[in-house]
């Protein structure tokens, strides 16, 4: 029988030097960043649609100084957080259980992988019809978007638990709750964290797209309205802010992943 491999591809051992990147690499990396900014600058000089980096950063600073950005940012972020946390609460236990229960997993697999392929944002109009425009429908969308990646990686991690650990749990007469919390959850935590990182970024994207479609408040809506008003520099500033937020979240998860791996 060929088990379906749900685990993300493992990084092979590197052939080059291991450890901190070489100074050459750091210099090149910085060089790429500088080139990108130069490219942006050139584009702003050539086209009147593209504002210069300085203008955009100044606009972003102004938005924070005036305080106009806080409410939309809070709205977007809280929708993502609520949905994301709800998705964890449902997907992690379900994934651990499915990973340990072969028949149930085999029955559920085509549904899960099939639904994972469906662009989540199309359910947004349905959520709008149920909850109306507002935080609730965005939160639900965030939850649905984060649910599938978390579920899939948790299943992968749960299936990969070494059989010796389950034997240990049995011989120590661990109860179901103890086995799940102390053995399964701990041993699958690396895979789960990968799912959390992907889930967080997908739910953030989904909420932004949803706000571009219809919202009362939020960063996506601000992009939309500043575009409509042809305030391009303001629009770029919000796009920049969205990018920074996404990078911060991703970086935070990467740090947690690294910390746990070195434990």
């Amino acid at each position: 029988m060929h088990p379906v491999n749900n685990q993300p591809a493992k990084r092979p051992l590197r052939l080059g030097p291991v450890g901190s990147p070489l100074p050459v690499v750091a210099i090149f990396r910085a060089g790429v960043a500088i080139l990108l900014i130069c490219g942006w600058w050139t584009a702003s000089a050539v086209s009147n649609l593209v504002p210069s980096p300085a203008e955009v950063v100044a606009d972003l600073v102004m938005m924070f100084a005036k305080g106009a950005i806080w409410a939309p940012m809070l709205d977007t972020v809280s929708a993502v957080v609520v949905g994301f946390v709800a998705a964890i609460v449902v997907a992690v236990p379900l994934g651990l259980w499915l990973g340990r229960t072969r028949t149930a997993l085999m029955i559920a697999t085509p549904f899960i992988s099939g639904l994972f392929a469906v662009p989540r944002v199309i359910v947004y109009p349905v959520l709008l019809a149920i909850f109306g425009v507002g935080l609730q429908s965005k939160g639900w969308l965030a939850g649905i978007s984060a649910f599938f990646p978390i579920l899939l990686t948790t299943i992968g991690g749960s299936r990969a638990i070494p059989p010796i650990l389950t034997k240990v749990a049995r011989s120590l007469r661990c109860g179901a709750a103890q086995t799940y919390l102390q053995i399964y959850l701990r041993s699958a935590i690396h895979s789960i964290l990968v799912g959390l990182r992907v889930g967080a970024s997908l739910s953030f994207v989904a909420v932004i797209v949803a706000e571009l479609f219809a919202a009362q408040e939020g960063l996506g809506l601000m992009v939309q309205s500043s575009y409509a008003l042809q305030k391009y520099s303001e629009m770029f500033a919000i796009v920049l802010l969205i990018t920074i937020l996404a990078l911060l979240v991703n970086g935070a998860f990467a740090l947690v992943e690294r910390a746990i791996r070195h434990e």
């Binding site: 590197r14 070489l22 990396r29 996506g220 996404a246 990078l247």
Partner: peptide
């Protein structure tokens, strides 16, 4: 190896950011 070390973080970053918000620029 050098090219990979230089560009891979950028590539991973592109994964994390909502590319969709760049649509008004393309529009």
């Amino acid at each position: 190896t050098t090219a990979r070390d230089v560009f891979e973080p950028y590539l991973v970053t592109l994964y994390a950011i909502p590319t969709v918000v760049f649509y008004p620029i393309l529009l």
